Computed example of a mutant assay.
Amino acid sequence: MIDAYEGGARVIVETVKNIFKSPVGIFIYALSTAIVGIVILLAFLSLIVVPSNLPWTLPVLIGFNAAGGGYGVAEKWGTYPMKKLALFSFAVILTIAGGTIITLFCPWEQLLDMNRYLISGVASLIFTFFGAWIAAKSQQLKHNL
């Protein structure tokens, strides 16, 4: 009986591994880790900083996590034909998620504050492509060694 459960667990683990090796899986993994990173950093900063100052730190947190996510996507995809579209959509989704998450930590903030989304979106776009650029340079360096 235990062998049947163990075999089923192996099949599930192998299926999940194959999903995360695909381009969509890599994108979802990078996006989910970036969103969780924003939540963790906002929770940490809410203990240190006055809560009314949290919305001002949001573009920095989104930019930091966007750079890491852009690096992760670009490093694992290699030569994917629609990488720029994927990085752009990554930045947009991360901006929307960060703008929504800040309302959980600061309930008095408006959900659709266009200035926040504009500033965070610009930071997210810049740093997503910056992270992807760093990944490309890292791959070139590894290739030349």
Score class of each variant (00 low, 15 high):
90 F>Y: 13
65 N>I: 05
63 G>L: 09
75 E>Q: 12
72 G>D: 03
110 Q>P: 01
70 G>A: 06
71 Y>K: 12
105 F>Q: 08
99 G>Y: 14
74 A>E: 12
102 I>C: 11
72 G>M: 08
81 P>H: 07
79 T>W: 02
104 L>I: 09
74 A>D: 04
86 A>P: 03
75 E>I: 09
86 A>M: 12
98 G>D: 13
104 L>S: 12
72 G>Q: 00
74 A>L: 11
84 K>N: 15
94 L>T: 05
78 G>W: 12
67 A>T: 02
71 Y>A: 12
94 L>K: 00
110 Q>M: 09
63 G>T: 08
97 A>W: 14
91 A>C: 10
102 I>D: 08
102 I>N: 13
70 G>Q: 03
83 K>F: 13
71 Y>E: 05
110 Q>R: 12
82 M>P: 02
64 F>Y: 12
78 G>T: 11
107 P>W: 13
68 G>Q: 01
79 T>C: 00
63 G>D: 11
89 S>Y: 15
106 C>L: 09
98 G>C: 10
74 A>S: 15
67 A>L: 12
91 A>Y: 10
96 I>G: 05
105 F>W: 14
92 V>N: 06
108 W>Q: 12
73 V>I: 15
92 V>M: 13
63 G>K: 08
110 Q>A: 10
73 V>A: 00
99 G>N: 13
73 V>P: 00
97 A>T: 09
111 L>N: 05
73 V>R: 02
89 S>R: 04
69 G>N: 03
91 A>K: 03
111 L>H: 06
93 I>L: 15
75 E>M: 14
92 V>S: 04
73 V>Y: 07
94 L>G: 05
90 F>L: 05
68 G>D: 04
85 L>R: 10
104 L>Q: 13
75 E>N: 14
79 T>F: 12
74 A>Q: 14
69 G>P: 08
108 W>R: 01
80 Y>R: 00
74 A>I: 09
81 P>N: 11
72 G>V: 01
88 F>N: 07
108 W>I: 00
106 C>G: 00
95 T>R: 02
107 P>A: 06
63 G>E: 10
97 A>L: 09
97 A>I: 11
109 E>D: 05
95 T>A: 01
100 T>P: 02
97 A>S: 14
76 K>G: 01
94 L>A: 04
100 T>S: 10
93 I>C: 00
109 E>Y: 13
68 G>S: 08
88 F>Q: 02
92 V>E: 11
108 W>S: 07
81 P>F: 02
111 L>I: 07
67 A>E: 03
99 G>E: 13
83 K>H: 14
91 A>L: 06
68 G>E: 02
64 F>N: 03
74 A>W: 04
73 V>E: 00
102 I>W: 14
100 T>V: 07
87 L>T: 07
86 A>R: 06
81 P>A: 10
106 C>P: 00
87 L>I: 11
64 F>S: 09
69 G>T: 04
99 G>V: 09
77 W>K: 05
69 G>W: 04
83 K>N: 11
69 G>M: 04
83 K>S: 15
91 A>Q: 05
89 S>C: 10
82 M>C: 01
82 M>G: 08
94 L>R: 05
107 P>D: 02
71 Y>T: 02
85 L>Q: 13
77 W>T: 11
92 V>D: 05
88 F>H: 05
79 T>D: 14
90 F>P: 06
88 F>K: 00
103 T>K: 04
67 A>G: 08
95 T>V: 07
80 Y>M: 02
88 F>Y: 03
71 Y>V: 01
79 T>E: 11
78 G>C: 11
